[in-house]
Amino acid sequence: MTIPYGRQTISEADVQAVADVLRSDFLTQGPVVPAFESAIANYCGARHALAVNSATSALHIACLALKVGIGDVVWTTPITFVASANCAVYCGADVDFVDIDPATYNMSVERLEEKLIQAEVAGKLPKVVIPVHLCGQPCEMEAIHALSQKYGFSIIEDASHAIGGRYKGEPIGNCRYSDITVFSFHPVKIITTGEGGMVLTNDVKLASHMERLRSHGITRDPSQMTKTPDGPWYYQQIELGFNYRMTDIQAALGLSQLKNLDKFVARRHVLADSYNELLKDCAVTTPWQHKDGYSGLHLYVIRLHLDPIKVRHREVFERLRVAGIGVNLHYIPVYRQPFYERRGYNPDDFPAAEKYYSEAISLPMYPELTESQQKEIVHRLITPIGHQTLF
């Protein structure tokens, strides 16, 4: 038996939605992309939503729209996928990290404030801070926003894991406490467009800028042009942009998937409750949920209590993989990657992230996972190695 750590859920309605576009006059930029954008904006309560070909692209144009460039510094969490940091490097900026909260695994507000106080004294405050809603659990955005008002930085919410979640009773993605929010629609995420992403904002100028950036820096809007159009065919490249557009084929899948978003998230919560019950007497820490948040539960991460069980982290991971259980580790601290190691980060500056990395394992989590599969996963997790009792 092989159980992946995550997988997409595709219905016949999803297949039909894509087939309808394939039989239509538009495969790339047709009517379905704006329909998908409008549906996401309405679901989240944001004024503007722009579909792109990946969340990485979304992060990139978000940084560019906020004028991140050479000489600027962007801060994010070390426990995230590398794209959360790379987007700043693409713009020529430097990157630094804020240690995580040991309970939520998100960016620690306390460590953020401490670092901001030090940075203000040194004259090196960040241009942008990118909190990441790890596993789908929202960061403490109200507190981070308050710090942004005091210290003058912009906020990009990396909500790649979090569509369908809520913060203080409101949908993640409404940008109440941020300038821009980013979603991912990769196949292992909560809903999928194959590859794809979305940027949301309540600022019309940011939205207009990101719309140009996703399509070569080109506009057909006469109000943005430097001279009167030569004719109805006319367009202008205002700046250097990219081909980051989403296709109608992808948007059709996303629009269909969106209809089941709340159901997918509710099912993930049922599975999380089941895991919590199955693991309640085991030597692991199960996910803790902050009272202000309703997680999208993209991931279910446990932390092993290694001292009591006297077994190495890697040994447990490999044993589960050999048994066909597709566990994973989200994530290797970004500063440990060779590209970032060369920039001179000191792991001792991030003790909570280091401890997390030494203990964390992501168990399979997706809507079609069954209770019997969960029992098998937990059985394999607690099975003794040789004569060693694990839990």
Score class of each variant (00 low, 15 high):
residue 2 T to K: 14
residue 7 R to A: 06
residue 11 S to P: 04
residue 13 A to Y: 14
residue 15 V to M: 14
residue 17 A to M: 08
residue 21 V to E: 02
residue 28 T to D: 15
residue 29 Q to T: 07
residue 30 G to D: 07
residue 31 P to D: 09
residue 35 A to E: 15
residue 41 A to S: 07
residue 42 N to M: 14
residue 64 L to D: 01
residue 70 I to C: 08
residue 72 D to L: 02
residue 73 V to C: 15
residue 73 V to A: 05
residue 73 V to I: 15
residue 75 W to C: 05
residue 76 T to N: 12
residue 79 I to A: 03
residue 83 A to T: 07
residue 86 N to R: 15
residue 88 A to E: 04
residue 91 C to P: 02
residue 91 C to N: 07
residue 92 G to T: 02
residue 96 D to I: 10
residue 101 D to P: 12
residue 110 E to A: 11
residue 113 E to W: 05
residue 117 I to D: 12
residue 123 G to E: 10
residue 124 K to G: 10
residue 125 L to D: 04
residue 128 V to D: 00
residue 131 P to V: 09
residue 132 V to W: 02
residue 134 L to N: 08
residue 136 G to E: 02
residue 140 E to N: 13
residue 140 E to M: 10
residue 146 A to G: 11
residue 146 A to W: 10
residue 151 Y to L: 05
residue 153 F to Y: 14
residue 157 E to C: 12
residue 158 D to F: 02
residue 160 S to K: 02
residue 161 H to P: 03
residue 165 G to V: 04
residue 167 Y to P: 00
residue 174 N to L: 09
residue 182 V to S: 01
residue 183 F to W: 00
residue 187 P to H: 09
residue 190 I to G: 01
residue 197 G to N: 01
residue 197 G to H: 01
residue 198 M to W: 03
residue 200 L to K: 01
residue 201 T to L: 02
residue 208 S to K: 05
residue 208 S to V: 13
residue 209 H to Q: 14
residue 211 E to N: 13
residue 213 L to G: 00
residue 221 D to L: 10
residue 224 Q to C: 09
residue 224 Q to T: 07
residue 225 M to F: 00
residue 228 T to S: 12
residue 232 P to R: 06
residue 232 P to V: 11
residue 233 W to K: 12
residue 235 Y to A: 14
residue 253 L to S: 06
residue 255 L to F: 04
residue 257 Q to I: 03
residue 258 L to A: 13
residue 259 K to D: 14
residue 261 L to Y: 10
residue 263 K to D: 14
residue 270 V to E: 15
residue 271 L to Q: 07
residue 273 D to Q: 15
residue 274 S to P: 09
residue 278 L to F: 02
residue 282 C to R: 15
residue 283 A to F: 11
residue 283 A to E: 14
residue 288 W to T: 15
residue 288 W to N: 12
residue 289 Q to C: 14
residue 293 G to S: 10
residue 295 S to Y: 00
residue 299 L to E: 11
residue 307 D to T: 13
residue 308 P to Y: 11
residue 318 E to K: 13
residue 318 E to H: 10
residue 319 R to S: 12
residue 320 L to M: 13
residue 322 V to I: 14
residue 325 I to K: 03
residue 326 G to R: 06
residue 331 Y to M: 07
residue 331 Y to V: 09
residue 337 Q to L: 15
residue 338 P to K: 09
residue 340 Y to I: 03
residue 345 Y to R: 02
residue 349 D to L: 04
residue 352 A to F: 07
residue 356 Y to Q: 05
residue 358 S to M: 13
residue 364 P to R: 06
residue 369 L to H: 00
residue 372 S to Y: 12
residue 372 S to W: 06
residue 377 I to H: 00
residue 378 V to Y: 03
residue 378 V to H: 00
residue 384 P to A: 13
residue 390 L to M: 07
